[in-house]
Design a protein around this nucleic acid. Structure first.
Lengths: 341, 341
DNA sequence: CTGAAAGCGCTTACAG
DNA sequence: CTGAAAGCGCTTACAG
């Protein structure tokens, strides 16, 4: 009988039998190798290899009360940042042998609370929370889960004001907003608008704050225009703007919004970057496919995912964290949609 | 003690005690309501509600040998199509109360086999396989899993030649390739190139087949250029092409490749669509952000995800399938990168 | 329609 | 360093 033929059906008893030890020893050889004599360990491990044995995850979870599973709670998956973050999360999860349960928040599906209950029932060891529209109630609910259920949580790519009750991994969006605004100011731009979203995302809030700070410092009038994320809606909205406002700088909270804006500008015979500087946030593929190429804040999305998963593993192991609000470094990529003297 | 305070810690014994029945009855009230007297059921269900009881997923999985969990195996998550498919999958999974375990195939991480073993150990009830680079060995391995482990599998957004041993949900990419090629031929294009990928994806293979069929039918010489998916590499590659070839039509297997091509064309003073028609596949955001807007095959990505999850639920319930190779309808969106008389 | 009991495949004190 | 045994929280024949 080849390995394949009973792949996955082998139990710990089979291994114990074949290795002529008790099942307790098999368990130890796997989970606490240092507690079993090298020869025995060797023998057991060989049998495991030979039989293609994989512990039954349910039995293990039930007995140990640990699942080696984490839940990742995300809003709409098709946002470019989320997908790339998942890559970072999955890679690190794999290194630390955690499985990833994916929960996608549905627009209509009102109840995030219900999903969190599900997550708890699933007995996950930790939660990665990627939703950056956090209300005070949601924050409290999360905090309650962390405290009562003893399930560690990490906020990924967002922070909640300055609170560190729940650790977070992100970049300093306020500073990034400030820096990119400074850049346009130094180019000599005066009428710099920030194009943000109608919906209130924590991260966009921070970008706005940084923008406001830079504008005020420079004694310029800040102007925030709010738009939906949808291309057609934005397009119309921007057309309207060109009729009624004079603008020479645009900072969009997302690359794709910046690209939409560039398209409308050119359709209105406004030259980018001669007449107007445009920049975005994230450094996605959109930025490189746009003409002119988009200047933007470079957000290390993959790393944010990876690091937050790493932080979560530490929490799950009861290890102490050096800092609870972790801001990774970001950059600014200067391309052709700004003046860059 | 409020509901929240022990959310998730309540066991079936607590419920049984409070409802004054045995745990067997509680279990039945949940899983086979018709087997318990209405009054009793009512009482039990009320207690469950009151205590905020959620069955422990591990105990349930261990005892029942069913996990109500499906594994989704995907290549690189950041491909636009994958993310959107996940939305469809997650929505339907939620409707049928399945949890989704996410497994991302790593470039370096050679061993897909190893991951599949993990998936089996996780005791999933079904597998959605979204990887469209299938080798004969991989197909056999999957088939073996389906047979030996009795785990239903569905191929999502791909098919394997014409085999239906493993059901698949996709669109008819061969036909789509044919149709989009016909479109350019009808515009009067003669030197139509297909830009495909270096790596061999099943779906791109099918697109190529359709392209070849249309070209041969029209007695035109088919020319396939293979490129990587990476923007910088493509850009250089395309520049080279303009020097040495005369081209008046381009069908790219992905929107983003088409957009790269448009950019290079314009940089070489080739007008789109006057001098050359360009089209892509998928109808992503790239297509709408590009200038000119990109004509492309419209692939119902969300639906492909949703339907394949639905098909999987049927298989997991031992329901019969009307057809094992399901091709959803696709469309062609005519925009400004082609002539569209 | 309901309950007592075995069993799912592990982990983990407890002895030795 | 190793084994016997209890227990994790459910499901499911089997009786009644």
């Amino acid at each position: 009988m080849s390995k394949k033929d009973r792949m996955g059906k082998t139990t710990i008893y089979d291994v114990a039998g074949a290795a002529k030890v008790s099942l307790a020893t098999v368990s130890r050889a796997i989970n606490n190798p240092e507690k079993v004599k090298p020869e025995t360990r060797e023998r057991v491990l060989n049998v495991i290899e030979e039989l293609g044995y994989k512990p039954n995850a349910f039995a293990k979870g039930l007995a140990s009360r640990k699942s080696t599973t984490v839940a990742v709670l995300v809003p709409d998956m098709s946002r470019a940042s989320i997908a790339e973050m998942m890559n970072g999360i999955a890679d690190i999860a794999r290194v630390y042998k955690y499985s990833v349960l994916l929960y996608i928040l549905d627009e209509e599906d009102s109840s995030e609370e219900e999903i969190l209950r599900e997550i708890i029932a699933a007995q996950v060891d930790g939660i990665l929370y990627l939703n950056d529209e956090i209300t005070p109630q949601q924050y409290d609910f999360l905090l309650n889960i962390e405290r009562e259920q003893q399930i560690p949580i990490v906020l990924t790519n967002t922070t909640y004001h300055e609170r560190d009750d729940i650790p977070s991994v992100s970049i300093d969006y306020e500073r990034a907003g400030y820096e990119i605004t400074r850049k346009l100011i130094e180019e000599g731009r005066k009428n710099i608008y920030m194009v943000s979203t109608v919906r209130k995302y924590m991260v966009n809030d921070l970008k706005e704050k940084g923008y406001l700070r830079a504008m005020e410092e420079a004694a310029l009038t800040p102007q925030i225009m709010r738009t939906s994320g949808r291309i057609t809606v934005n397009t119309e909205h921007f057309h309207e703007y060109f009729k009624h406002h004079s603008v020479d700088g645009i900072i969009a909270v997302r690359d794709s919004i910046a690209v939409s804006f560039i398209n409308v500008a050119r359709a209105n015979d406004v030259r980018v970057p001669e007449d107007i500087s445009v920049c975005g946030f994230q450094n996605t593929k959109y930025a490189r496919l746009s003409r002119p190429n988009l200047t933007c804040v470079d957000v290390p999305i993959y790393d944010i995912g990876a690091v937050s998963m790493r932080v979560l593993t530490k929490l799950m192991n009861q290890e102490a964290l050096d800092e609870r609000i972790i801001n990774l470094d970001h950059g600014i990529v200067s391309r052709d949609s700004t003046l860059n003297d």
